[in-house]
């Protein structure tokens, strides 16, 4: 086990380096921050001064070398736009995104698990179909559309929640639901199908025939299935973390990483985008490692060394 984790961690370093290379070079191919930083009337001379000050006059490879060297010294660079250290810029916004992600996950669990189990128990009945249709619709709606519909109904029409911003628990509700909608729907579907599979297994049939109540059996097996489903959804949610928060944070004016990244791309704030990408990639790598380990604990038949199943 320890050997396995060490090996995976080493592999992760390679992966992160690869991610860094891609983001560093594609960013620089996609435009120059000078146009954003200087007012339209700035002279050529000023453009040159700025290019030199930002170190953009050096070759790409040299810039990458300097960047790598600084990273190993714990320096992720300075934001061109905010004119302060990138780590500060990011850590100021990180709590908001973490809050949002945690609550959307909570929403996923509160809605997804009971609905999934319920749907499996009522399999084939009208109520099963209703739950499944809702779950499917949840998966099929574009996120920004769902967010705007929620704002109009629950914030503007019913005035139950604020339309935007942060500050209280009430502010969290609508953005969390929007962000969690897709994962909640996925949880319902996953849980339903894995429950059905378990219910059709021979040993369950035998147990039922022995007179054990179906409900008891369901609850016993529901737990294991629920955890597996949650792990899978967690993996999916982490992969879509940034994409989701970019849109949800924009719609709800949530001061987090997603919005920062949208703005930083628009401003070609290289250092910020690079650091965010590294951060997200690290989270992805770590969570997936954890998910794989937990999988193997819950389900010993999954052999870790045989590559990971997501």
């Amino acid at each position: 086990m320890f050997h396995y984790i060490l090996k995976r961690l080493l592999q992760s370093l390679i992966v992160l380096l690869g991610v860094l290379v891609i983001v560093f070079f594609t960013l620089r191919l996609s435009g120059n921050p000078i146009d954003v930083l200087l007012p339209p009337g700035a002279s050529e001379e000023m453009v040159e001064i700025y290019t030199e000050q930002l170190g953009l006059d050096k070759s790409l490879v040299a810039q990458f070398g300097i960047y790598l060297k600084n990273i190993f010294q714990g320096d992720f660079g300075t934001s061109y736009y905010y004119k302060e250290a990138v780590t500060g810029v990011i850590f100021e916004r990180l709590p908001a995104t973490i809050q949002l992600t945690l609550f959307s996950f909570l929403f996923t669990l509160i809605i997804g698990i009971p609905a999934g189990v319920y749907s499996a128990l009522k399999s084939g009945k009208a109520s099963d179909y209703i739950v499944r249709i809702f779950a499917l619709i949840g998966q099929c709606m574009p996120v920004f559309w769902a967010g705007l519909l929620l704002i109009i109904v629950f914030a503007v029409q019913l005035n139950l929640f604020p339309t935007q911003g942060t500050g209280s628990f009430r502010h969290l509700v609508l953005p969390s639901i929007t962000l969690g909608l897709y994962s909640a729907a996925t949880t319902v579907r996953l849980l339903r199908s894995s429950m059905l599979e378990v219910l059709s297994k021979d040993y369950i049939q035998v147990a039922t025939s022995k007179g054990l109540s179906k409900r008891k059996i369901v609850w016993k097996h529901a737990f294991k299935n629920a955890v597996t489903a949650i792990l899978t959804v967690l993996g999916i949610q982490v992969a879509g973390l940034l994409a989701g928060s970019m849109i949800v944070e924009t719609v709800f004016s949530w001061p987090g990483i997603g919005r920062l990244v949208v703005q930083s791309i628009n401003n070609r704030d290289f250092a910020v985008v690079q650091a965010v990408v590294i951060l997200i990639a690290s989270i992805y790598v770590v969570i997936n490692l954890l998910v794989d380990i937990l999988y193997s604990i819950i389900n010993p038949r999954v052999r870790l060394m045989k590559g990971s199943s997501k």
């Binding site: 705007l148 704002i151 503007v156 604020p162 004016s253």
Partner: peptide
């Protein structure tokens, strides 16, 4: 002062008195 990027959200915030 508050920054609210989405226009529909901005209007919604005004209409709800925020």
């Amino acid at each position: 002062f508050k920054p609210i990027p989405e226009e529909s959200s901005r209007i919604a915030a005004l209409e709800s008195g925020e």
